[in-house]
Design a protein around this nucleic acid. Structure first.
Lengths: 238, 238
DNA sequence: CGCCGTATTGAGCGCTCTCAACGAGGGTGG
DNA sequence: CCACCCTCGTTGAGAGCGCTCAATACGGCG
């Protein structure tokens, strides 16, 4: 696949991904070890819930293995998946700093290993390290733009366009550490994919079918592999 | 109008409003004067553009009079209005801190007076005052939750529900300083209201008509006044 | 083999969009 | 002062997208 094209697409969809600078890979060594000084290990089985909407937040989390889905319940019972965090990513800090209750629920998509940092400890770390504080602030500012873009997507784009975009995002999310090839195995059940795209399962399946029939994606069992990145990117309108 | 009910509704829709803690009224005296030390005055006529999507940000702004709409252009030419800032509110700081280009366009909805604080000056203020930094961080964290809620709204709710919600929000936005009565004059053209709700003008007008016929709102000229807060709140599903 | 949860397909309805026409109001130039 | 134009708001009609309900296929597991 054309490298220039690939980087253009990646660059374009990065406007819709949190892709935090606050990952295991990106934090400076010193700050990272400072932050993780007294971190505790947590293990979660698939489908286990880490925290629920409405709870007071306990601390922040960094994923060392697996994926966590962040979702929100609508008043009519529908579930909206907002993000999928994967290995290396850090989350939960915004709720701590804003002093809110959890606006979302965090559930393990697969078996997970996490590092947990207590609220007090985290706040202390932020206070003690101006660099850390600055990194968090920068990260949140950037993510604000990302969320604005997301709102635009949901407010204005059709399901076909949204699905194309989210498949491209998921392709990044589902990259395994050190993955070289471009295509990831997107291993997500239809219910979750529908909740992520913001549509009904039936509609999702039908749209996915048209992508398959056009050769844009390939299916192996329930997993999805993207075959034509450019087509999806063009459909997504990003 | 029942006070308890009123506060319940306000509390509920505040989950969808930025309602920054960073306003003229809420910032501590010392920090405010520090921040505004070398601020410049800017005047804008109605429809004038303050900055455009894609531009590098110049600084931050605080509104002393008027309203500014923050909008984003979709690839197909549709405009999505994301926020309406009003007197006392501060904006533009997130783009500065995240070191992004402007993801949005800011346009005067009415004749406006603003205070402008240069980028360097603002960054310096943040660096020098830990309290200011903390306030900004808190504010952004909270706003993250607000945006998540918004995404949910656009992803899952029908136009009728969204319009009810946004009318309630606009009722707050359009309160004049020191306004005592509950009902504000929502003075916004149909195009902007449609772009804010995320629908077409025709659809907006029709939905508005059903609200009027049900006695939920009243129209004087082109202005909208809410008459039944509880009904709208209940429709909004919040 | 039968069961259960998940995925897929079909059908029909309603919401929302688009295109098109009409109406109302304000501003401008004759 | 009137005629015209331009913008904005409103209404109508028709098409299509997306939702819901219902039925059917598939696959893993007891």
């Amino acid at each position: 696949m054309n490298l220039l094209l690939k980087s253009r697409i990646q660059n374009s969809i990065s406007n819709f991904m949190l892709s935090s600078n606050l990952s295991l890979e990106n934090l400076p060594e010193t700050e990272l070890s400072f932050l993780l000084a007294d971190a505790k290990k947590i293990s979660l089985r698939r489908k286990e819930i880490l925290f629920r909407e409405g709870e007071p937040p306990k601390g922040i989390y960094m994923i060392t293995r697996g994926k966590i889905k962040i979702s929100q319940l609508n008043y009519n019972g529908a579930v909206q998946i907002l993000f999928i965090y994967t290995h290396g990513e850090l989350f939960g800090h915004r709720t701590i700093m804003g002093n809110d209750r959890q606006p979302v629920t965090a559930t393990a998509l697969e078996d997970c290993e996490l590092l947990f940092i207590e609220k007090e400890q985290f706040l202390h770390a932020i206070k003690s390290s101006p660099l850390l504080a600055e990194l968090f602030m920068k990260s949140m500012s950037h993510e604000f733009s990302v969320l604005l873009n997301r709102i635009n997507v949901f407010a204005q784009r059709a399901i076909r366009e949204r699905l194309a975009l989210f498949l491209l995002i998921l392709n990044e999310t589902y990259k395994t550490p050190n993955q070289i090839i471009e295509e990831s195995e997107i291993h997500m059940n239809r219910n979750d994919l529908a909740a992520y795209t913001g549509t009904s399962v039936e509609n999702l399946v039908r749209t996915l079918k048209t992508f398959r029939e056009s050769g844009y994606v390939r299916m192996e069992g329930k997993s999805i592999f993207i075959q034509d990145f450019e087509a999806l990117h063009s459909i997504s309108g990003s």
